[in-house]
């Protein structure tokens, strides 16, 4: 099923003397499952855009089609809002601030219970989700506040996974995590994607976009500059400078090597491993 934005506008404080346009004329279609990155400077409208999807914000104009749900500007309360939020789940930045329950297991099973699952099923789903994010069983009865920053983050993400969303929306999920913790979380999302969950990822880490995303949206001052393949977008210098985005280090390295006369197959280079493989292949051929 597609996720579709049909000319969506959103203005904060629209009826006040100081309205502020956050996103303008956002128009795109993504077919599920997708692993799509959203990039752009702070203030470019990334967070505003994703909040239209689960109706935390309703478009000022235009509409969003999420599976069988439609989010538009009508002021009416949406009857299906709970099902929509189960379908498309959102993890905020620094998600660990949202933990609140007495124990890890209670915190994670809160979501499914809230969506009217009975206790037993909710706990089962919570356990499954905690397992997926790599939280061991001896943690289940601990207070979430006793955990380290990285563990808290994973518990918060498990809270969302327990609701088994079709679309998982993540705002900077790896900020503040150590390199290994970040790596594990991203591998988890990639695994979910390969099993049919769609991922929408807001990030400032271009290396992550290059490595994992199948498509990427570039936002600038509330407008969508376009939807691209990560393997192409980072070589488009003009676009990047318009959006005030720095290319990943790896791309800069590839370009530096190309200037020295190397001809590397750009389409094969997504991370350091594939870069090394490409160099090996090339040097092998020369020999």
């Amino acid at each position: 099923m597609p996720l579709m934005f049909d000319h969506v506008y959103y203005t904060y404080d629209a009826s006040s003397p100081l309205p502020s346009k956050a996103i303008e004329d956002i128009h795109f279609t993504l077919n599920e499952p997708f692993f799509c990155g959203i990039i752009g400077q702070t203030g470019s409208g990334k967070s505003t855009l994703v909040q239209q999807i689960n109706a935390l914000l309703r478009p000022t104009q235009g509409k969003v089609i999420v599976g069988e749900f439609v989010v538009d500007s009508s002021k009416k309360k949406m009857k299906e809002i709970k099902s929509l939020r189960k379908y498309a789940g959102l993890v905020f930045q620094f998600a660990e601030y949202q933990l609140f329950e007495e124990t890890v297991l209670k915190d994670v099973s809160f979501g499914p219970k809230n969506f009217k699952e009975n206790e037993e099923v909710a706990v089962e789903k919570a356990k499954k989700a905690l397992k997926k994010v790599g939280i061991p069983e001896e943690y289940f009865s601990k207070s979430p506040f006793e955990l380290s920053g990285g563990e808290k983050r994973r518990v918060a993400i498990a809270g969302l996974l327990a609701m088994e969303p079709q679309i998982l929306i993540l705002d900077e999920p790896t900020a503040g995590l150590d390199p290994k913790g970040a790596q594990e979380i991203l591998a988890l999302f990639y695994d979910l994607y390969q099993n049919g969950t769609s991922i929408l990822l807001i990030t400032h880490d271009m290396n992550v976009v290059l490595k994992y995303c199948t498509s990427v949206m570039v936002l600038h001052q509330g407008k969508l500059l376009g939807m691209y393949s990560p393997l192409d977008v980072f070589y488009q210098k003009e676009l990047l400078s318009e959006a005030e985005i720095d290319a990943p280090d790896l791309i800069c390295l590839v370009e530096q090597m190309e200037k020295k006369g190397f001809s590397l197959n750009r389409q094969n280079i997504r991370d350091i491993e594939s870069f090394v493989a490409e160099i090996k292949k090339m040097k092998g051929e020369v020999k």
């Binding site: 150590d178 390199p179 290994k180 280090d249 790896l250 350091i272 870069f275 160099i279």
Partner: peptide
Amino acid sequence: IGLDLPFEKKWKEEL
């Protein structure tokens, strides 16, 4: 222990 090299060292290390 879950740490990594900075990019400018990492690619050289891998090569």
